[in-house]
Design a protein around this nucleic acid. Sequence first.
DNA 1: CGTTCTATGTGAAAGAGTTCACATAGCACT
DNA 2: AGTGCTATGTGAACTCTTTCACATAGAACG
Lengths: 242, 242
Amino acid sequence: MSDISETNSEENIADIPSKPAKSSRPKRISDSTIHRLSRYLRLLGRLEADGVKTISSKELASIKRLTPAQVRKDLSFFGSFGTRGLGYPVSELKVKISGILGLDHRWRLAIVGVGNIGSALVGHKEFPERGFDIRLVFDNDQRKIGSKHKGLIVSDIKNLKEGLIAEKIDIVALAVPASVAQEITDVIVEAGVRGILTFAPIHLDTPERVFVRREDMTMELEYLTYALSSEDIKSINDIDLS
Amino acid sequence: MSDISETNSEENIADIPSKPAKSSRPKRISDSTIHRLSRYLRLLGRLEADGVKTISSKELASIKRLTPAQVRKDLSFFGSFGTRGLGYPVSELKVKISGILGLDHRWRLAIVGVGNIGSALVGHKEFPERGFDIRLVFDNDQRKIGSKHKGLIVSDIKNLKEGLIAEKIDIVALAVPASVAQEITDVIVEAGVRGILTFAPIHLDTPERVFVRREDMTMELEYLTYALSSEDIKSINDIDLS
DNA sequence: CGTTCTATGTGAAAGAGTTCACATAGCACT
DNA sequence: AGTGCTATGTGAACTCTTTCACATAGAACG
């Protein structure tokens, strides 16, 4: 049973907290720490390009609106990468974080569903730049199958399982309608893929060994509408009626 | 902590109970609670369509892999919507949550940037279905400006500020290169828009009254690569430690 | 109308994540 | 080599979130 899979705020991964703490486990790194590492990494890339050699936790934090302690704590979970009195060596830290995040080699992706979102993913330039190679693209629409889409030929979803296995796909980006997301997920899982990035706004049932992350724009929009609405309510309530 | 601007200006206001103790929104509600409300809402929509009249916290939780207590707690922050011994009335709860999230009226969106992601947003069918109307689309590419994009004419980004004001835009979805994201954000803020959903992987500097949410696919992919990599490492490490 | 049974609503406990605060490592400069 | 200075690394304190556990509201049925 993986402790990483037990994300707290999102239900992504199937998990029933049945087992008591297994012996002495490394230590569970929080969701948010990993996300922050991603963000440090990107910043470090820019700093390196700018020729910055060293950066302190304070500077790192101020750019991202975090506390220096947060930065140091995040990094300290994985080792001591800084020099006391000096700060962190930019290039070296970048390499270290890349390693932690598993970005020391390239990853093989497949996109399933070439609708609005799927197309955007296929053309997304950031992916190859950051180590993700899109190897396969699938759809069930006969008009799309066989056609070239930004340099990649769209495969028939009927061949999904075989394709994923043959191309040794690590991660699938799932951009299909919610109504078929679960059945396609089952095929992906059968093919042995253990990472899924889904855009379907439903819960996907997967075995424990499979990691699922959801990207949900509507949910984020709804967070905004909540925030905007309750602000308004607040200002109304702030007016003293007496 | 997420990027949502801090919303606690309540320290200023002394706790004078001049009004009926019908406190509107006393505590700060967590990020995760709001996200879960979004997800309950979607599930309730499906249940309602299926003719389900009543649902218990246990059922609600099992579908989403949460605990019943979590569901009840989330809802209890906003009131008592259920009936003891019975559960929650589906339609009624749906209306209540919609209200909490500010979804009792439609919201006016603008998309800035019609690249891969921007195009996907413009064509995204879920938005209108969920109360979000895309009113304006902007780009800086002369070849795109003036052309119709899924029924909407692309405006010149030079007219961003005026357009946002004229169309009373509530929320902007920002899908532009990171290099120009901050300057465009400044214009959006000047136009008085207080909600931004950004796809640029950088920190946006905004005044406190503006709410920013980030959608970051690469970050989620990196979470997956982290999880997949450390799984492998873990099986090696599982042997010793402390 | 009373009894039984079920699932809510909620304080309190437990568990996570963040911030504090400070001892200390290492650089710089004499 | 010694002194001063700065920023790391990290237990401990604190704060926020989740889970527990149970009293109790209301439905159902005789």
